[in-house]
């Protein structure tokens, strides 16, 4: 990402070489005839496939292969149902209302866990990022807790919080808190000290420095953290809903497992995938909106 900071120093040698070749009368021993090559304009590099076509090609090819394997009998239906069958089952689940209800429940859990975890993680990161005493008090315990696999805490959480919504929200919150904390903290500590100094010289107060320099500087890191957090939130949701639940997508999957319905399981997995995709889209949009000041390397 820091490629945008590279100093534009490279053109100079080219220019001197060019001006040399334009003056054949110069006294110096010339470099000989130069091998010139055209600078091709970016848009004329042949025919370009639209972006959305390129992006959907991969999944469609995969789907086609799957259908072919199912149709030829290589994949039997008790191993994995065919795409057509899955579409049918998916439609049934939607029309009898069980899938939308389950999705609503799961989304609510992820949202509340994500919100709580983000608030806690950001709060802790601010305390330890902005104040040295906060760092001394907060950072070590958080780093210690971070290494405990949060999934292992599910039994403990069930004992503490019972079997309602609380343990599920708690497990997601816990999973989300650490990536948010780590990235916001790193973002704050990674802010260019020269900019902080400049802000100081402009007469900004401590709060002004935080608001105008430190926090905007930490934003790219914070958004990276949010992305990680979203991934972990779905993961935590799957665990939480499969261990002990009476509603939600995970519950639907556990039920399907008991009846050996691979088609329902695959529908649920697809739903998870799409929800993940949706979440990623939200974060991407957020990044585009909040980080528009930052011209970044976008690939070739």
């Amino acid at each position: 990402m820091s490629i945008s900071h590279a100093p534009p120093s490279s053109p100079e040698p080219d220019i001197s070489a060019m001006s040399k070749s334009e003056r054949p009368g110069a006294e110096r021993p010339g470099p000989g005839p130069l091998d010139l090559q055209p600078v091709v304009p970016a848009f004329s590099r042949g025919f370009r496939v639209p972006r959305w076509v390129r992006r959907t090609t991969g999944p469609i090819v995969l789907l086609a292969m799957w259908q072919v394997l199912s149709a030829t009998g290589v994949l039997t239906s008790d191993v994995l149902a065919s795409p057509g069958r899955i579409a049918q089952v998916g439609w049934d689940l939607v029309s009898d209302g069980s899938l939308p209800t389950a999705m609503g429940t799961s989304l609510r859990r992820v949202a509340s866990g994500l919100l709580l975890g983000t608030v806690i993680g950001t709060g802790l990161a601010l305390v330890s990022g902005l104040f040295r005493i906060g760092e001394d008090l907060v950072d070590a315990p958080v780093q210690m807790l971070r290494t405990v696999p949060f999934v292992g805490l599910i039994p403990l959480f069930i004992i503490w919080f019972g079997i309602g919504e609380a343990p599920k929200t708690a497990i997601i919150t816990l999973g989300v808190t650490f990536p948010i904390y780590l990235n916001v903290y790193a973002g704050i500590r990674g802010v260019d000290s020269q900019l902080v100094e400049a802000g100081e010289s402009l007469g900004l107060s401590r709060w002004g420095l935080t608001r105008h320099v430190v926090l905007p500087g930490a934003l790219p890191g914070a958004l990276t953290g949010l992305r990680y957090a979203l991934g972990i939130a779905w993961l935590a949701l799957v665990f939480a809903e499969q261990v002990n639940a009476d509603a939600g997508i995970g519950f639907l999957m556990v039920q399907a497992r008991d009846f050996l319905r691979t088609d329902v399981i695959v529908v649920c997995l697809i739903v998870y995938a799409f929800l993940g995709l949706l979440a990623d889209f939200v974060v991407r949009s957020l990044e585009r909106l909040l980080l528009q000041w930052r011209p970044t390397f976008t690939g070739r």
């Binding site: 020269q194 010289s201 905007p216 500087g217 000041w293 930052r294």
Partner: peptide
């Protein structure tokens, strides 16, 4: 008031907001 050797503008603020900062 200081003008540093490197411009040190806040990249997340538009030019005019940089000028008014502080």
């Amino acid at each position: 008031a200081v003008a540093f050797q490197a411009p040190r503008l806040m990249p997340w603020k538009k030019v005019w907001r940089n000028v008014l900062l502080g």
